[in-house]
């Protein structure tokens, strides 16, 4: 049995801690925040949508993401909702829907009546939609709380908040610090994402809905308590300042176009996170001076953390040696 130190209690850190513990290793997790999941994970959509993501992502994102829903289901029973994804477009943007369909697999075309059957709130609002039946979603904040609990049950120790790091003889350190790793890992950059939460009892959705638009595509992910996460911008900067008026306006406009009742909703939260990414937007397990790093999760944290965690944990069980010079 070896002892590992995981730096960063976001989705990547908790996932790899869980994988190591499952393999019988000991794990300490440190984070300078007082509670887990306070970085980009906190603002994630939580869509387990590998087929939809394939529209603009490399094929590897699809293949690595296919098992994500099962992994989360095992790790945090009850966290995953398997209701698929609905993709819609305004009548004048129907060409974008056709384009989306031609770039993706695993979908079926729905007509007016079928859309109404799936999502009564959207009844009569769209003539056509794409339904990705085999996709799922989760509430990132709840899922990470559940995962942390599972980690504690398996013997993992958390050291949260500022303070001296535990002085122990670690076999290796896993850097899962997300954007904080940007200065240390060559090729990493930050991509800003802005989101907001709306609260209304007038709209009810059972699954994430993506609304295509040539400039401002959005998704709306339903949460409990009449809340809806609306996201997300992708801006090429690592500036993590508050959401801009323009982005807020665009997200709200799009939500309003999806359903006018969102116009009456309360804006209960806005958020900004920095997604670390490599230039192909595909995450990697990279070697560092003290172990490994899971880096560049981009917008695929919850979708790809399971695969990256298994990849990193697998490295150690296959006889880890620093000098091998490994990059995934």
């Amino acid at each position: 049995m070896s002892l590992f130190l995981v730096k960063g209690a976001g989705v990547a850190g908790l996932s790899v801690a869980y994988e190591l513990l499952r393999r019988g290793e000991d794990v300490d997790i440190v984070d300078y925040q007082d509670t887990i999941g306070q970085g980009a994970s906190f603002f994630a959509g939580g869509m387990l949508a590998p087929y939809c993501e394939r529209e603009a992502a490399e094929d590897i994102v699809l293949t690595l993401g296919l098992d994500a829903a099962d992994w989360w289901d095992r790790a945090v029973p009850g966290a995953v909702v398997r209701n698929g994804t609905l993709v819609v477009a305004q009548p004048r943007d129907l060409a974008d829907l056709t384009r989306f369909a031609s770039r993706t697999n695993g979908h079926a075309w729905l007509g007016r009546n079928e859309i109404a059957d799936l999502e009564p709130s959207l009844s009569g609002r769209f003539d056509k939609a794409l339904f990705f039946e085999n996709e799922a979603h989760l509430d990132p904040r709840r899922a990470l709380t559940g995962l942390a609990k599972a980690i504690r049950n398996l013997g993992g120790l958390f050291h949260l908040g500022w303070g001296p790091p535990p002085k122990k003889n670690y076999t290796a350190v896993l850097d899962c610090t997300g954007p904080a790793a940007i200065p240390h890992i060559p090729g990493l950059r930050g991509v800003r994402g802005e989101m907001l939460y709306l609260e209304t009892g007038e709209v009810s959705l059972s699954r994430p809905v993506r609304m295509l638009h040539p400039r401002h595509p959005i998704y709306v992910v339903p949460r409990d308590d009449n809340r809806f996460m609306v996201g997300a911008t992708m801006i090429e900067t690592d500036d993590d300042g508050p959401i801009s008026a323009r982005s807020l306006m665009e997200l709200l406009n799009a939500a309003y176009a999806l359903h006018p009742a969102f116009g009456e909703a309360r804006v209960v939260e806005t958020g900004v996170g920095i997604r670390p990414a490599f230039d192909d937007n595909v995450p990697r397990v990279v070697e560092t001076g003290e172990g490994l790093a899971i880096a560049g999760m981009h917008r695929h944290g919850f979708l790809l953390a399971p695969a990256m965690a298994k990849k990193a944990a697998g490295r150690f069980s296959n006889g880890f040696a620093l000098q091998e010079g490994m990059t995934a």
Binding site: R189, E236, T237, D239, G241, S244, S247, D279
Partner: peptide
């Protein structure tokens, strides 16, 4: 405007653009 979100850096993305090795024509889109 789009890629800086109000800040003046643009950071890594602008660096990637510079590394393309072609002439850059900045625009005032937005």
């Amino acid at each position: 405007r789009r890629e800086t979100s109000g800040s003046r850096t643009g950071g890594a993305f602008f660096e990637l653009i510079r590394q393309l090795g072609v002439r850059i024509l900045p625009n005032t889109a937005g």
